[in-house]
Design a protein around this nucleic acid. Structure first.
Length: 461
RNA sequence: UCCGCGGUAGCUCAAUGGUAGAGCAUUCGGCUGUUAACCGAAGGGUUGUAAGUUCGAAUCUUACCCGCGGAGCCA
């Protein structure tokens, strides 16, 4: 039996650990910086903020320093009479993007952007910035992309990155809240999943050629048959020499895959998913959308249900609008724009001709000429943001399809196993993150929606 | 890969065969409420590269390099 003393001795290490933990927490609190988006809690107080010079104006005895700290923008007023001559001189010499620390009193000020202003009493230089290349004036895209590492500091780019982050969070939240398991597929793969796109090739030790993944879907199917509902979320790679505003060679894709979902279930989920993403951004990132001058009413309208048209109906829409189009062809960019312009919500085009779709898509039992596939076209001409389908779940049929597409059966042995051991109907889709961000932000080009875009003629910075 | 457009000051652009220009940025001066501040001054150029036509080429011709937009393909 333990004595009182021995209990104390046993507890001592725990008490000691607790003490360490508490002091660690206190330290972090003490070093906590104040950020611009917290200023409403500090009106009337003297605070110190750190950041960079976004812009500067001066009018004789008063300097206006615009501080940016990643959370917002704040006008700091430096009056000649309120600071020492050295500090006034320093405020005058600060160049665009110089890092600095400023101390002063927080005031509510309707004249200032953001509604708050800092009456500075002290300014300290942290590090200077000589000849910052990006000015508050216009620049061409080539120059801006060359300076992407600095362009990211600009107001619109900061807003886009924050919206991208919110969308990524909405994606994770949506699936996490609905019983999905995150399932990470390999990036290095031995073969093409669809056999059509060009892949980035590499030498993989003694095993010969390997490729960067263009989709995690086939692996996600294995995940769905193990865990029921899974999603993958990560980068994918396409070596196609696509040179348009909708293409990157490296981009992020989220791919849910669900056992026991048919095409209708798949479309129901896609529609709920898109609504959730858009409404999350509207709820939490309205200020950023306003910086981007986005027409918010167009996004507020993104509520279920979305229109669903079959490929056959889509072809009829094209014909009714005087566009020549032959049944069996894939919809081109102009065709997609035509179709989506008829609706003010994302439109789901389903049951495409099987011949133009991937080998793993299940044919419609009611019409063997079409596949149980769906593409979701974003409104306002932003084009395809989702591609999905119900998967072929019959072993013999899938073997036939692989042969028809001249794909190597050996590579798909494991994939065929999924149809051999307890095969079930299952479906999924892939949503392109950058295209979704482009649409929600209402911007022209996908290259601005990822920190460092990779395009056919550019892999720097 | 194909089609179209472009490359002039650090940046955005003008100059259509006859002395290389403006705005912004930079430096200096002025201004106590600016919002891409404003006013005045200064510095800043092998006109993408190479060859050709011409008394003379940023400008015309040819080739090449680089970039942008679009098509196909795709998310």
């Amino acid at each position: 039996m333990l004595s009182k003393n021995s209990i104390l001795i046993l507890l001592t290490p725990f008490l000691y650990l607790n003490f360490i933990n508490l002091s660690t927490i206190q330290n972090t609190q003490m070093t906590n910086n104040i950020y611009i988006n917290d200023l409403s809690k500090h009106v009337g107080e003297e605070v110190t903020l750190k950041g960079w010079i976004y812009n500067k104006r001066s009018s004789g005895k008063v300097k206006f320093l615009i501080l940016r700290d990643g959370t917002g923008y704040l006008q700091c007023i430096v009056f000649k009479g309120n600071v020492s001559p050295e500090v006034f001189e320093l405020a005058d010499s600060l160049a665009q993007e110089a890092s600095f620390e400023v101390t002063g009193t927080v005031k509510e000020e309707p004249r200032a952007v953001g509604g708050y202003e800092l009456d500075a009493t002290d300014v300290k230089l942290i590090s200077e910035s000589v000849d910052y290349p990006i000015t508050p004036k216009e620049h061409g895209i080539e120059f801006l992309i060359d300076h992407r590492h600095l362009w990211l500091r600009s107001k619109k780019q900061v807003a886009i990155m924050k919206i991208r982050h919110r969308i990524a969070k909405a994606i994770r939240d949506f699936f996490d809240e609905r019983g999905f398991t995150l399932f990470d597929p390999p990036i290095i793969t031995p073969n093409a999943s669809e056999g059509t796109s060009t892949l980035f090739e590499m030498e993989y030790f003694d095993l010969g050629k390997a490729y960067l993944t263009q989709s995690g879907q086939l692996y996600a199917e294995a995940g769905a048959l193990a865990l029921g509902k899974v999603y993958t979320f990560g980068p994918t790679f396409r070596a196609e020499k696509s040179k348009t505003r909708r293409h990157l060679t490296e981009f992020w894709m989220v791919e849910p895959e669900m056992a026991f979902y048919d095409l209708d279930d798949d479309m129901d989920l896609a529609e709920e998913f898109i609504e959730y993403i858009v409404q999350s951004v509207l709820k939490d990132r309205k200020a950023e959308l306003e910086i981007l001058e986005r027409d918010i009413s167009k996004l507020e309208n993104i509520k279920r249900p979305f229109p669903r048209v079959s490929y056959d109906e889509a072809v009829k829409i094209l014909h009714d609008n005087g566009i020549e189009f032959e049944w069996g062809n894939d919809l081109g960019a102009a065709d997609e724009t035509m179709i989506s312009s008829k609706f003010d919500k994302p439109v789901m085009v389903h049951r495409y001709p099987a011949e133009i779709k991937a080998f793993y898509m299940k044919r419609d039992p009611e019409n063997e000429k079409v596949a149980l596939a769906v593409d979701v076209l974003a409104p306002e001409g932003y084009g395809e943001i989702i591609g999905g389908s119900q998967r072929e779940d019959d072993y013999d049929t899938l073997v036939e399809r692989i042969k028809e597409h001249n794909l190597p059966l050996d590579f798909f042995k494991w994939y065929l196993d999924l149809r051999k051991y307890g095969s079930v109907p299952h479906s999924g889709f892939g949503l392109g993150l950058e295209r979704t961000v482009t649409w929600i932000c209402g911007i022209e080009h996908v290259r601005e929606t990822i920190p460092f875009p990779r395009m056919i003629y550019r892999n720097t910075p």
